[in-house]
Design a protein around this nucleic acid. Structure first.
Length: 526
DNA sequence: TTGTGTTTTATTGCCTCC
DNA sequence: GGAGGCAATAAAACACAA
């Protein structure tokens, strides 16, 4: 009795301590949260409840996390805008437009001018707007992501948009959101949650009315953000880039005509087919990161996969992984804090086998996700399912394409762009009046160097998990624009996928069938 | 090992909308 | 007035240089 009471008191003590002290989310929780956040920046109550239940967190924690996550996004956007705004001395208007985010994503932006649409608005419009058709969405995606045209499945933008949403996540612009998964069989977007719709109170008309203009404005804004310092067909005016190493921009394929989009193709970068020399050329400064990811790490992470429900072990692994993650940050960019985190541990940290349940369920979900039968009218379930799909896909993708892609928080500490204003950024916050008076020669030189470096990084840095950093996204989109302008033939993603699948077949765990692999790969437009 | 800086989490207050 | 959101703040956890 004494023993038990003692134990109990200790447990209470621990519990109290846990309650008292803030507790870091585990990797798996963060993974789930981030994944969910990628899709829904403003989850409904049902979503939160479901998420809370699955993650063993309180709804309050979920809400708080999302709130802080949005703030984080916003802060990052702001920092980036500040950094970019320094390049573009014109004004903050461009910054706001360029970021695609309103200054205040909650209050003011709800009724703000469409030019300041933020992720919230866009998402809400996408969710609640019943007037947007599949064709419309498809057109939107196609018209803006020509590189994926060949791989776009009309019946499901899930496959093609997976990368897109990753690549263009974080509410950069209205194209971020995946539309089709919310489509009903008749092509209309079902109301997600009447209450949520009411609460949010977004009227579709405004967005629809200006959609075209938004697209134009967003693209224009991005261009403008870059525009001061780049020409569409070359380096910045008056700036000469360092000569890139030979083959740095070459596609690692035998089809030079398709090299265009191989530049930032993560799988290729991580492909064993790429020689070490070329890898070095491509990302020499990140070599240390990749080499750090040694076999021991792989062993550990694979071991994680096999110990789904060992929470204690998980906590330790979480800590270790956090450490590793932060030490391995290969480059900056903030879009994905998820991918690098070990996706395999006890996903929801309970002992109910939920994680394995998701794994087993994914096959069915993946096999049916392209069909309308896989869609439910139940919005919460629908979102949840899709969320689970994504978790499964992400997990499997990591397995298929190697752990060396694992990369989490790349942003901070990189010395370029940090969540918080880096010292460089902070120090770069030159008073406007000073800037307006004109940059001194020295400042201009520094500016050029930074821009140059940025441009290089844009083409060099590739997220380990296949997501592109914000800057890459901007660059990529700008590149898409350029391609559209000059009718450059994009790399057929399908072809790349074929190669990737072929390559991955040797790497993938034997437990995965070819069909499964192909299916998975087809849903990932890396 | 320690000090410092950064990130993440939790709390509180205020605002807006219904 | 309640709900949901953001902003500000504090504090814990973490990373890293000295």
């Amino acid at each position: 009795m004494k023993e038990s009471s003692k134990l109990q008191s200790e447990e209470n003590k621990v519990s109290n301590d846990k309650n008292k002290k803030r507790k870091l989310k585990t990797q798996s929780q963060l993974f789930a949260l981030e994944t969910f956040y990628d899709e829904h920046k403003y989850p409904t109550e049902e979503m939160k409840a479901e998420l809370a239940e699955k993650l063993r967190l309180t709804e309050k924690q979920i809400s708080g996390w999302f709130c802080h996550r949005r703030l984080k996004d916003k802060r990052l956007m702001k920092d980036e805008a500040v950094a970019n705004g320094r390049q573009d001395r014109s004004s903050g208007v461009i910054q706001d437009r360029g970021s695609g985010l309103g200054q205040d994503s909650c209050g003011s932006s709800k009724h703000a001018d469409y030019r300041y649409l933020d992720a919230k608005e866009v998402e809400s419009h996408d969710f609640y707007n019943n007037e947007i058709s599949v064709a419309d969405m498809t057109h939107r995606h196609r018209s803006h992501y020509p590189e994926n045209v060949s791989a776009v499945d009309d019946t499901s933008s899930e496959s093609s948009s997976f990368l897109q949403e990753r690549a263009f996540a974080q509410g950069q612009d209205p194209y971020d959101m995946e539309p089709s998964r919310h489509l009903t069989p008749n092509g209309a977007l079902p109301p997600l949650n009447p209450k949520g719709a009411v609460n949010l109170g977004y009227k579709p008309s405004g967005y629809l009315k200006v959609k075209g203009e938004i697209e134009h404005a967003a693209i224009t804004a991005v261009k403008k953000q870059l525009g001061r310092h780049y020409e569409e067909d070359g380096p910045l005016l008056g700036i000469e880039f360092d000569p890139l190493p030979p083959g740095a921009f070459e596609c690692q394929t035998e089809d030079p005509a398709n090299e265009t989009f191989c530049v930032a193709n993560p799988p290729l970068l991580n492909s064993p087919e790429i020689s070490a020399a070329k890898k070095h050329n491509l990302s020499s400064r990140y070599d240390s990161h990749y080499t750090k990811f040694n076999s021991q790490d792989l062993h550990v992470e694979r071991a994680d996969f096999g110990s789904l429900h060992e929470s204690d072990f998980q906590d330790k692994q979480d800590k270790k992984a956090r450490q590793n993650i932060k030490q391995r940050q290969p480059y900056y960019g903030y879009t994905n804090h998820v991918s690098g985190r070990n996706p395999f541990p006890d996903l929801y940290e309970d002992s109910t086998g939920e994680a394995s349940g998701y794994n087993s369920a994914k096959n069915h979900r993946m096999s049916t996700k392209h069909g309308v039968e896989g869609m439910r009218s139940d919005s919460a379930s629908n979102h949840s399912d899709h969320f689970e799909e994504k978790l499964a896909v992400k997990t499997k993708d990591l397995m298929l394409h190697g752990y060396d892609k694992i990369n989490p928080k790349r942003i901070q500490k990189s010395g370029h762009v940090k969540s918080k204003p880096s010292s460089s950024i902070r120090s770069s916050r030159v008073p406007v009046d000073t800037e307006e008076r004109g940059l001194s020669a020295r400042m201009a030189k520094e500016e050029m160097i930074k821009v140059e470096q940025k441009a290089k990084n844009t083409y060099r840095d590739v997220d380990g998990a296949g997501r592109l950093s914000n800057e890459i996204l901007v660059a990529k989109r700008a590149k898409v624009d350029m391609l559209q302008q000059y009718h450059v033939k994009p790399s057929p993603v399908a072809e790349m996928e074929k190669r990737k699948i072929h390559r991955s077949a040797a790497e993938m765990p034997s437990s995965f069938s070819e069909d499964e692999t192909a299916e998975t790969s087809s849903s990932l437009d890396y």
